[in-house]
């Protein structure tokens, strides 16, 4: 039967081995995959500024992006493709809560420039290769 010291070896050994594999895979992802899949060359100052605005207003507190965030408002990874620039700008520049289907968004009343930055960020994120996410609705007629 397993002794306490064998159990300890199982714990420490298992942890060290899996953590080493994890670090190796992470290193590979970050140095080889991320630059290509996210088109890092397109990360312009405007896109980065858009990311700042995205975070400053905690957009993830209602929406999801890359499928991450809250589930109160639509997933926005492909919003540029789905709605286009004019719609996004109208939503973030609105001085009254944007509520196309009843549910209210905070009225951010962004400036033209801020809105352009947000659009640039959302356009960039829409082009990231996400291994097929989000899937196309396969029961849609």
């Amino acid at each position: 039967m397993l002794s306490k010291s064998q159990a300890k070896v199982f714990f420490l050994g298992g942890t060290i081995v899996t953590f080493a594999i994890f670090l190796g895979l992470s290193w590979n992802s970050l140095s080889n995959e991320v630059p290509k899949k996210t088109h890092e060359e397109n990360l312009t100052p405007q896109v980065i500024s858009g990311k700042h605005i995205w975070e400053k207003n905690n957009c993830m507190g209602c929406h999801t992006i890359l499928g991450e965030g809250a589930y109160y408002a639509p997933e926005l990874t492909k919003v540029y493709e789905r709605r286009g620039e004019a719609y996004i700008k109208a939503a973030v520049m609105s001085k009254t809560p944007w509520a196309p289907r009843g549910r209210q968004m905070v009225a951010y009343a962004m400036t033209e420039q801020e809105a352009n930055d947000v659009v640039a960020f959302l356009k960039w994120i829409g082009e990231v290769d996400l291994n097929g996410f989000p899937a196309k609705p396969d029961l849609k007629k």
């Binding site: 714990f11 298992g14 942890t15 953590f19 590979n28 991320v34 899949k37 890359l66």
Partner: peptide, 27 residues
Amino acid sequence: YVIVGLTFISGILGTGHHYYYIGVGKA
């Protein structure tokens, strides 16, 4: 020890379930 061993062996590489669709590889 056995339980925390199982936790780490599955949980550390299990982080991968957050990496499916965020812009990293298919591995």
